[in-house]
Design a protein around this nucleic acid. Sequence first.
DNA 1: TTTTGGCTTCTTGTATACTAGCATACAAGC
DNA 2: GCTTGTATGCTAGTATACAAGAAGCCAAAA
Lengths: 241, 241
Amino acid sequence: MTTPLPIIAGTRMALQIAERLREEIVSAAILPGQALSETDYATLYGVSRQPVREAFIRLAADGLLEVLPQRGTFVKKVSIKTVADARFVREAVEAAIVVEACQRATPADIAMLKQIIDSQTELLELESSKSASADEVMNRAMATGFLALDEAFHRALAKVAKRETAWAFVDRLKVQMDRVRYLSYQEATPAERLVAQHATIVEAIAQRDVALASADMHIHLAEVVGALPKLRERMPDMFED
Amino acid sequence: MTTPLPIIAGTRMALQIAERLREEIVSAAILPGQALSETDYATLYGVSRQPVREAFIRLAADGLLEVLPQRGTFVKKVSIKTVADARFVREAVEAAIVVEACQRATPADIAMLKQIIDSQTELLELESSKSASADEVMNRAMATGFLALDEAFHRALAKVAKRETAWAFVDRLKVQMDRVRYLSYQEATPAERLVAQHATIVEAIAQRDVALASADMHIHLAEVVGALPKLRERMPDMFED
DNA sequence: TTTTGGCTTCTTGTATACTAGCATACAAGC
DNA sequence: GCTTGTATGCTAGTATACAAGAAGCCAAAA
């Protein structure tokens, strides 16, 4: 609730508000359990309750908010079961995606994937050089930047496999995992390791080694859940179940 | 728009309307491409535009409706790519589910699955005995009944694997496949064959044969797409792309 | 001290009115 | 005949007002 308001008035404000809130929730700028009031956000953005309300409905459909009639709307706490099953689904789908990527990848595809990995490496080098000044804001910015590049890699993989629509399905449940990654960028797997795994996957694809690529993807996606127990211990209020 | 109105006034009418419309769209009682008016449905259900509007938003989020500002709201036409990728995702996830079901299934679980299959068989025998009077209404009722039992089987499988949450994710994209099954219950795979496949899967689970169970599930889910080409030829207006 | 009743104040749910944009039809001008 | 301007009737988007229920507070009674 401390946000300014770069909302473009006039056109589909419900959608803009939904997108903005989604990002704030996923990036843990608004914490789990937080109560959100339709009225408050309406005044904050200078609109009526209706667009805010419709934004809330959209986010509730994605499992980010919980609307309790006559009581209030709250940011959903992290559910271990939900995160675990989101990983389960994503792992199954992305393993299938890399199999098809193995079969379809052109040299240009491989080059593109490697270029994304190079960007990731570049970002990490920049980060380590600045790591002396480990202030909160810088950390957040780095986490956001890296997650964007991570997203780009997996999306590109789906594109290579010509499964963009399948990725769109996965993208909707991925937010449940991303929330955890933002909350736990302290105890999370070092980004360097993730980038190395990306490289391994691409290498397997380049070699058309279906079994290896699939196995590597399973290993890669299993990392995310590892941070959960420690995270829950550190901030139990963020969890339910 | 020819529906009566068994809507319970007073409590969360937006949700009731959304559920009802969802069923009508998935079961092809409302056809793809059809224009829906907020105002018309408001008067039909005896409510204001707002609840109808919120129902539309929910269904649009699931890819069943398309809201075009200042133009209208339309039932989404069937997208081959969307259906194909929905199957792709579901296949990947359910194959993973049967693997875990193989590992966890208790004798009671096996018995429960077999009981569902028995119910399916029973329904089919009833259908074949009545098949002389092959009227439209009867066919629809049978299709609905069988799809409900099919749904029950796959849901039960997820429960055995303790992946109910994962199934909830799949359930959201399954509607894209169900629409096709309703539209094409003429040229679709005979239900007897599907039930036989169910039995094969359960048998593999009972034998703890992971590879076989997984393979059987892949075969089982591949059936649905087979009907697409003929269906598109029969009713091209229902498709986009 | 504990409990109970009512009041106040919050919340979301719904209804109604108004705004703005698109599409179509139709008429005027070329 | 063809094009273009315009009026009209539709649509969804938004604003405002009211209704209904939940929660907390506080005072009064047991």
